[in-house]
Amino acid sequence: MSKVRILTKGLLKENPTLVLILGMCPSLAVTTSAMNGLGMGLATTFVLLMSNLLISSLKNFIPDSVRIPAFIVIIATFVSIVDLLMQSYLPALSDSLGLFIKLIVVNCIVLGRAEAFASKNSVFDSMLDGLGMGLGFTLSLTLIGIIRELLGSGAIFGHTLISGDGILIFVLAPGAFIVLGFLIALVRYLQRKKN
């Protein structure tokens, strides 16, 4: 596979949220606004990139039967680092994402890429893969955030476009499920049309 393909496959063709249906919890929970979606996506991207980098460089050092606990420790370390950095430099965003930053640990995408890609491929390829997957995740989270913020409070990234109360249900829990459901349906429709 060419380097470009490794990087770009996560964006659309194997988009973690919309195509592979991974990492549903943060995709639903933190996307009440575009900014939150973007922040969560970038935090996850950092963890993916760093854990893929480290795991692929350590793959010959870690004995096979303890690789999962070792991966979890590595991932949890980077998650805690991101958590501390965000509390320190982006306190407002860290407050609104709350628990879900810590829960990147159990995001299936991160452990999934470690096991499926980084433990088998070279360091550089793994970094590209982590970056691509992370950006794909960021893209879909931001998209869901934009849709929910626009419909729910008439704004994008906090800039009011339509004044008034908006359709409140979209910033609440049911709106998250419904927006994501329709988005996945749309992606599937487009894929079928292309084929």
Binding site: L58, N60, F61, I62, P63, D64, S65, V66, P69, A70, V73, I74
Partner: peptide
């Protein structure tokens, strides 16, 4: 990498 108790404990502890 072959796993035996020694290198399992060693690598995990180190990590």
């Amino acid at each position: 990498k072959e796993s035996n108790l020694r290198n399992m404990i060693f690598s995990l502890t180190l990590i």
